[in-house]
Amino acid sequence: MGCYPSKRTKETPGYEEPTVLAAETPFTVSEVEALYELFKKLSRSVIDDGLIHKEELQLALSRNKNRRNLFADRIFDLFDVKRNGVIEFGEFVRSLGVFHPNAPVEDKIHFTFRLYDLRQTGFIEREELKEMVVALLHESDLLLSDDVVETIVDKTFCDADLKGDGKIDPEEWMEFVSKNPSLIKNMTLPYLMDITLAFPSFVLSTEVED
């Protein structure tokens, strides 16, 4: 490679060195390099520019880039840390780090809180909870009467809002998830433990030892 920047650095905006990302996340250097293969695949699915656009994440998560999905939108918003409308490689790896089986549970709980705090007020409000339930029902083509939805939302909100002030704060959320650990089941991706097996092509070209 000599004194020239690597091809990846030149070609991919926002590319960050795997050694740097590995030092900040639960991933090894090899795993970060494998994630780069996944990132490349996702980032060229609609617009081939080395960045993940909202439609590309939407396509990967819901198989339909045109059907808006509230939750895929929220995932995109949290991954897009710089808030510039695209997910860069570093943002992708750092965000996925939270989903690693070895990532701290507190990080997973914090991530879900931010995910469900739709309007970023620092609280999960009843209205937001209802909006998410309605979105989920719509996505799943499930029909429940408004009365039933209200009952589900009321009961859940009552259980989580320990202080009874009409909103769920981060402390209450932590307590609620501790009592209902299944709520963060989707925050752990076993795939991330063997990502190098899923995307082995980099192994032949890696130059850095873990």
Binding site: L96, L129, V153, N180, S182, L183, I184, N186, A198
Partner: peptide, 26 residues
């Protein structure tokens, strides 16, 4: 199914949009 006893957050967590394992499916 007994919807009134459901935990709303549990219901939400089943969303396909939150199922990031689909990123790894080929």
């Amino acid at each position: 199914m007994a919807p009134v006893t459901m935990n709303a957050f549990e219901l939400i967590s089943t969303s396909q949009g939150l199922n990031l394992s689909s990123l790894f499916e080929k």
